[in-house]
Computed example of a mutant assay.
Amino acid sequence: MRRLLALALVAATPAAAVLPEPPGDPLAGEGVRLLEGGRYEFGLPLLEAALARLPGDPDILVYIAFAHRRSDRTEAALAAYAQALATDPGHPGALAYQGSLFLELGRRADAEANLARLTTACPICAERETLARAIAAAVESRSP
């Protein structure tokens, strides 16, 4: 199931990175299962409850950001990514997904800054490679 989600995410977004493994918290795990099924409005409250018990957990925050992003709540997604990165500045998923969202918002310089941070945090990882390809595609699509 996680592999299918990862493949769907790659197809659905310009810089989709592999989401982190579901946290060990049972509420978070159920919230993640709901997100995987596209039921963001049901998964989000469970993830928020899990976050209340595990404040600042960057993996849970990435899932919360993902749910907001898929529900067209860009500002809430950006805030959750920022919160995840405040806890773990080198979190590969948060950097890649935030970078992807930056590209969608036309903020290429911010996406490139995330790529630089990813290169430092994990020079050889799927998240860095995916964001690098998305940035290259964005640059290429804007070339005359």
Rank of each mutant, 00 (worst) to 15 (best):
G37F: 02
V62W: 07
D59T: 03
G106C: 07
M1L: 14
P14M: 02
R108I: 01
G29H: 08
Y40N: 13
E104Q: 05
R33N: 05
G37V: 02
R117A: 12
D88F: 08
T87C: 04
L7Q: 14
L95A: 00
R33E: 13
G24M: 10
A116Y: 04
A52Q: 14
A80G: 01
A111N: 02
R2A: 10
A49K: 15
D59G: 08
F42H: 06
G24V: 09
A11S: 07
R39M: 12
A79D: 07
P23I: 07
A65T: 02
P144A: 15
T130I: 11
P26I: 12
T119A: 07
A84G: 04
L103G: 02
T74S: 10
H68F: 13
D25G: 08
A137G: 05
L44V: 09
A49I: 04
D110H: 05
C122K: 11
L118K: 05
A6T: 13
A28C: 06
G43N: 09
L95Q: 01
A80F: 00
T119Q: 08
A67Q: 10
L51D: 07
E36Y: 11
G37D: 15
L4F: 08
L5K: 01
G38M: 14
G31M: 11
L78E: 12
A79C: 01
F102W: 11
P123A: 15
V10R: 12
T87R: 15
A65V: 09
A8R: 10
A96P: 04
R39D: 04
L118D: 11
L61P: 04
P144N: 13
A15C: 07
P58V: 12
G56L: 06
R107M: 11
L5H: 06
G37I: 05
F42V: 05
A11V: 12
F66L: 12
A8V: 09
R108Q: 10
A6C: 00
A80P: 00
R128G: 02
A86N: 07
H91S: 10
L78I: 05
A15P: 02
R39Q: 14
A16W: 03
T74R: 13
P123T: 05
G29K: 08
F42K: 15
F66D: 11
H68V: 06
A86K: 11
G31R: 04
Y81A: 02
A84Y: 09
A79F: 02
L34F: 03
L7W: 09
E30N: 08
Q83P: 01
S141N: 13
H68A: 03
V18N: 07
L27A: 12
L46K: 14
A65D: 09
G43C: 10
A84M: 07
D110K: 02
R107D: 03
A82W: 05
R33A: 15
A11D: 10
F42E: 14
R108M: 01
L101A: 03
A126Y: 07
Q83H: 14
I124P: 02
L9H: 08
R33S: 12
A16Q: 07
R108Y: 00
E112T: 02
A12S: 13
L19K: 03
Q98L: 10
P45I: 14
T120I: 12
L118A: 09
